Amino acid sequence: MELTYYGYSRCGTCRKAKKWLDDQEIAYNESDIVTSPPSREELEQLWKKSGLELRKFFNTSGKKYRELGLKDKVKTATADELLDILATDGMLIKRPLITNGEQVTVGFKEDQFEETWK
């Protein structure tokens, strides 16, 4: 199944991830995480398939995250509340976010990409 890649063109980590996918000749459909972010329902499915803690889906180094003061909120909010927050703005989502419908990676770590997408 072809990958869906949610990224942001001005993100250095996204550029590294795309280069890796391109170098491996792995096909993907690209979606701008800012203009076409995953819906709340999609985020919930991605989170459940990822096996990660939901807080790992937050772009904690992002300006928007700091502006909204989410550092403490993320520690105490319910999963539903966190999903609602994530769905409000693609800039809150850690990127790149990649899925093939069954597996999900958040961010870019070359060894994780080797294991998951190669």
Results as ranks from 00 to 15, higher is better:
Asp111Gln: 03
Ala17Ser: 10
Pro37Lys: 03
Glu44Phe: 03
Thr99Trp: 03
Glu25Thr: 12
Arg66Glu: 15
Lys18Pro: 04
Asp80Phe: 09
Leu83His: 02
Gly12His: 04
Ser50Cys: 05
Gln103Val: 04
Asp84Arg: 04
Glu67Pro: 07
Asp72Ile: 13
Glu102Ser: 04
Lys118Val: 14
Leu92Ser: 05
Lys94Met: 05
Glu110Thr: 07
Tyr65Met: 06
Leu21Trp: 12
Asp22Phe: 05
Phe108Ala: 06
Glu44Arg: 04
Val74Ala: 05
Leu86Tyr: 13
Glu41Asp: 03
Tyr28Met: 13
Val106Gln: 00
Pro96Phe: 09
Gln112Val: 15
Leu97Cys: 10
Leu82Thr: 01
Leu92Lys: 01
Val104Asp: 00
Lys49His: 10
Ser61Lys: 13
Glu44Val: 04
Met1Gln: 08
Arg95His: 04
Val104Cys: 02
Thr13Phe: 01
Asp72Pro: 11
Thr60Phe: 12
Glu25Tyr: 12
Asp89Lys: 02
Asn100Glu: 02
Glu53Trp: 05
Met1Tyr: 06
Gly69Pro: 06
Gly69Asn: 13
Leu43Phe: 12
Ala27Asp: 12
Leu43His: 07
Arg10Ala: 15
Glu25Phe: 11
Glu44Gly: 04
Ser31Tyr: 11
Thr35Glu: 02
Ala17His: 05
Gly62Tyr: 13
Gly69Glu: 09
Leu97Lys: 06
Trp47His: 09
Val106Pro: 00
Ser36Gln: 10
